[in-house]
């Protein structure tokens, strides 16, 4: 099927350039905000971006539902989604890399363990600093804090996400058998779990700030902790929204047993978020 007799060629598209303008406003506005300016430009940019996405995706959905896409287009979409997820993996890789580097190199070095100038570093600059993980550095940035324990919230969150992976798979099986109603039901469960996860994470952050004195400014531990869990949480939100949209489309009689790429893309994304969480759970919370 992927060798069609004629190719699909879309007509002109106005959304991309609007998207560029939106991103421009968003970025420029965000930068000004950071420099002490107002937030309006940024908000306008974000709003336009959302509007653009809604309209652009709307068009794509309409075309798909009209059966304008050949099997070849479908394959293109699949590949793109796959490699997009791979690029996201690499993005997380940078932060995991930072975590590993801080734990295996900079921390021990500062406490005098290692070749070269490590001993001198500790003796001359930071005497008294003993490396343990977690730590907030030789100057104890952010003062005393309590590390986040892996129990109970993170364990609960792990269970939530794992369960949501299962519900998502059940939904997938349902649509593969053409049972749209069942798909919608199980997707609802998946989304609910996703949002529950986000709420739990918010609770965890509240705990951290309010009771543990664990903040972004808590040295390298706080930095890696919030950066990794924060970006992950953001991805969970995105994933849940995507699943929600897929669910709503399901209620509008979109998708069939053979044509449900959007569902699969969302599911892949969801599993990716899941796997990243497992990495987080192991390396951020447990080890």
């Amino acid at each position: 099927m992927s060798s069609p007799s004629s190719y699909y060629i879309p007509h002109e598209a106005k959304w991309p350039i609007i998207g560029s303008i939106a991103l421009f406003a968003f970025f420029a506005g965000f930068a000004s905000l950071l420099n002490g300016g107002g937030w309006i430009v940024m908000a306008l940019g974000a709003a336009l971006l959302v509007y653009m996405m809604v309209r652009w995706f709307g068009e794509v959905i309409a075309e798909s539902e009209n059966g304008q896409y050949s099997a070849q287009v479908d394959v293109s979409f699949r590949m793109s989604m796959m490699w997009f997820i791979f690029s996201e993996v690499m993005f997380f890789g940078a932060f995991f890399g930072a975590l590993f580097y801080a734990r295996t190199f900079s921390g021990p070095w500062l406490s005098g363990l290692g070749e070269g100038g490590a001993a001198a570093t500790n003796a001359v600059l930071w005497s008294g600093f003993d490396y343990v993980w977690p730590n907030n550095g030789p100057e104890q940035l952010g003062d005393n804090y309590t590390p986040m324990h892996w129990f109970p919230l993170p364990v609960l969150n792990t269970l939530i996400l794992l369960t949501s992976g299962v519900t998502c798979t059940i939904a997938h099986h349902a649509i593969k058998h053409g049972d749209r109603a069942k798909m919608v039901r199980w997707l609802l469960a998946t989304c609910a779990l996703g949002f529950f996860f986000v709420i739990m994470q918010a609770v965890e952050y509240y705990e951290a700030y309010a009771h543990l004195n664990l903040k972004m400014t808590t040295g390298i531990y706080g930095s890696t902790f919030f950066m990794l869990t924060g970006f992950h949480g953001f991805h969970v939100c995105m994933g849940a929204i995507i699943l929600l949209i897929v669910m709503i489309r399901g209620t509008r009689k979109h998708f069939s047993a053979t044509n449900h790429f959007a569902f699969e893309a969302a599911a892949w994304y969801w599993h990716f978020v899941d796997v990243v969480w497992l990495g987080l759970f192991i390396f951020v919370y447990i080890l």
Binding site: W109, L110, G116, G117, A120, T121, V124, L125, W126
Partner: peptide, 10 residues
């Protein structure tokens, strides 16, 4: 040799 703030190189 690079002079890195917070670290000592030999």
């Amino acid at each position: 040799k690079d002079a890195i703030p917070g670290f000592i190189n030999e």
